[in-house]
Design a protein around this nucleic acid. Sequence first.
DNA 1: TATAAAAACGATCATACGTTCGTATTTAAG
DNA 2: CTTAAATACGAACGTATGATCGTTTTTATA
Lengths: 196, 196
Amino acid sequence: MSRTAGSSGKKTLAAIREAGLDLVHEHGFEAMSLRRLAARVGLQPGSLYNHIETKQDLLFDLIHNHMVTLLASIDEELEGIADPLERLQAFIAFHLTYHIERKREVFIGSSELRSLEPKNRRKIVALRKTYEDRLYEILEQGAVNKLFKIEDIRVSTYAILAMLTGICTWYDAKGRIDRKTLIDIHTRLVLQGVLK
Amino acid sequence: MSRTAGSSGKKTLAAIREAGLDLVHEHGFEAMSLRRLAARVGLQPGSLYNHIETKQDLLFDLIHNHMVTLLASIDEELEGIADPLERLQAFIAFHLTYHIERKREVFIGSSELRSLEPKNRRKIVALRKTYEDRLYEILEQGAVNKLFKIEDIRVSTYAILAMLTGICTWYDAKGRIDRKTLIDIHTRLVLQGVLK
DNA sequence: TATAAAAACGATCATACGTTCGTATTTAAG
DNA sequence: CTTAAATACGAACGTATGATCGTTTTTATA
């Protein structure tokens, strides 16, 4: 893929991000070389710096972008739903669907927190906490309404998230189970563990 | 840490493994330099090769060692327990305890499969499958005995493993919750999702 | 205490690293 | 059509990479 001077910066940045997701996922952030990244995008190494500040900034950009989109999406998804049970069902379906389609981002978002500078890491951890709180609040609301019976809301939040996220990384879209069935099974598993 | 020629190879190899776990966990396998590893152990880079074949062999050794010990331990743990419910409880307690104490190994064992050569990766994946089968068989036995009611045994196996393993990576031993409580909560969560 | 084996040293190989910079080219706005 | 801004080039910086090898030092055995 060759590229000419002056060509659209928007497109080039998008290509850099896409190749970055691939390469970080494949080699880890520290081991991803900007030379390989540039080659995949069709640039000379130095030209990357017309689009990114530093390698570190690229990593932050990739993870931050993921988290912000995730948060905006869940809020959109839950908007207008009041009943805790329905909200929980919506959360499960959304989380599974969203994460299945973004395995690279999910992997990087958890495995490469180590490579973020402290200030950047704090920002990401705060966003993650905000997302976790969406589920926490649903469980809490259901518990208050005597709809759910939960021993420890915080631990249950983490347990449900671990289950849903973990499964996404294994799930093979071309395998035995279709997406709807996957959602159904998990909805039932979670509800059994949570319903009164 | 300084080291003298002729000193015990067993100790040196153990130190290499320990430092290797740390550095792979911290930087990722590809980005872990043998120079840094050697420095941490107190060796010149070339001296590592008195103990390891290649960098790749070290990675395989680290992961393989973990998986073999894991398998031997679960078999020992389950030995003599016949009742599926008791076996499930034993599995949960064991898995949580074992994984909490080996966060580095667990992390590396999942995130660095990508860095294993195909032949090595196949061996590890086979061992992992064997471990997963231990839980699968417990669930199956419980289902046959009409003790458990499980919609999809394979998916439930993965879901339970994802939940238990995921939580281990977050769990802070110095935090609000002690280990016994963590096990109790998770045992209840799993049983609710599985019991008839 | 003589000696073989084990382990460490330290130099070396060609190659790759992230980033900077001066220059050239292309695009888009006026 | 002119021109400023955006983008790309390509060389260069000092440093680090995994692995090899001949040599030296230390250990343990007999």
